[in-house]
């Protein structure tokens, strides 16, 4: 089994595409840093001012509005602002502080969606390309079981994704430190929640959680595109479906709002492809928590892996 893994790993890094993906991650991270940097420049309050005083001043301003205005939406927004600022004060979170840790917390998963994209492409092509150019025949006549080749290829894609992720973290850390200075991993941060209370936490608590959940989703993306490329013998279809799911996931909240009431919706895998959202909320739908989501994904994963392996074990390579 080990020789197969080694072979796959060597083949992977002998492809130009692999190096282009790695380079793209670096370039993308530079771009995100540049955008983030210009954005921060514009909005940051003048340095030297005490952030707690600034928040309190804002609360006072909003209270004045509360007293004088009577239009409902203005009042509501003022109340919300006061509530938020008080929570920030109570949790000790400076909303304007920017260092390499807060930078990583806010940008890591944005850049990581490109890793998902590249992993989908790698997973879709690693089996089908060898079938297309005829080298698969020369693998399957070797003294190994067919599933061992699949396993080696699958693990190689997972390893590739992990390598890209490590690369991303390193580049992110370097750029963040260069542009925003080194900060403590326990820098307090706020995580926005659109339909519930915001979460007040620290980077070292929340970022590993988000990353772990992201990786579970990434694994799911790899499994789906890998399996589809085997079952439908089509690299194009597998890449297409993978990218479709990627986009559909980003608008899955809209689907959830529309279809959340139906009995079957929670058994579809799509709404569970945004696991990092569980960092700020306990339930996606009433009764649908992290455990349920992971369970649904696990069932899908087993079905996909099972079907593609059985098919690959039995198929004739003509």
């Amino acid at each position: 089994m080990l020789p197969l893994l080694k072979n796959e790993w060597i083949k992977l890094w002998n492809k130009k595409q692999t190096w282009i993906f790695a380079a793209a991650i670096v370039v993308i991270m530079f771009a995100i840093t540049a955008i983030y940097y210009s954005f921060i420049e514009e909005t940051t309050v003048p340095q030297g001012q005490n952030w707690e005083i600034a928040l309190e001043t804002e609360i006072a301003e909003q209270e004045e509005i509360l007293a004088n205005e009577n239009e409902e939406w203005v009042l509501e927004s003022a109340e919300q602002k006061i509530e938020e600022n008080e929570a920030l004060l109570a949790a000790g979170v400076d909303p304007n502080i920017t260092n390499n840790m807060t930078f990583m917390n806010e940008t890591l998963l944005v850049a990581a969606s490109f890793i998902t994209l590249f992993s989908v492409i790698a997973a879709s092509s690693i089996v089908s390309s060898e079938i297309d150019n005829g080298t698969m025949k020369h693998l399957l006549i070797r003294p190994f079981e067919r599933w061992q080749f699949l396993l080696a290829k699958f693990l190689t894609v997972v390893g590739f994704s992990a390598a890209l992720f490590v690369l991303l973290v390193l580049v992110n850390l370097i750029l963040g430190t260069l542009f925003f200075g080194a900060g403590s991993p326990s820098t307090p941060v706020m995580e926005m929640n659109f339909d519930g209370n915001n979460l007040y936490t620290t980077v070292d608590k929340v970022l590993p959680q988000k990353s772990g959940l992201y990786f579970l989703n990434l694994l799911m993306f790899i499994i789906i595109s890998f399996s589809i490329s085997i079952l439908f013998k089509s690299q194009t279809l597998a890449v297409g479906i993978g990218i479709f799911i990627l986009f559909a996931t980003s608008i899955s909240q809209a689907f959830t709002a529309l279809l959340g009431e139906t009995a079957w919706y929670k058994y579809v895998f799509l709404p569970h492809m945004d696991l990092p959202a569980y960092v700020v909320r306990d339930e996606l739908l009433p009764g649908v928590g992290l455990g349920f989501s992971v369970g649904v994904l696990a069932v899908y994963a087993l079905v996909f892996i099972g079907a593609s392996t059985v098919y690959f074990q039995k198929r004739d390579l003509a």
């Binding site: 080694k6 072979n7 083949k11 005829g134 080298t135």
Partner: peptide, 28 residues
């Protein structure tokens, strides 16, 4: 068994030697 099934297919972007190394690793 050693075999060439139809056209001999290789990893074109790798050298002949690296290709052979691939197959050497898979031997018993």
């Amino acid at each position: 068994i050693g075999a060439i099934v139809e056209n001999p297919a290789f990893y074109d972007h790798m050298s002949g030697y690296k290709n052979l190394e691939q197959y050497a690793r898979m031997a018993k």
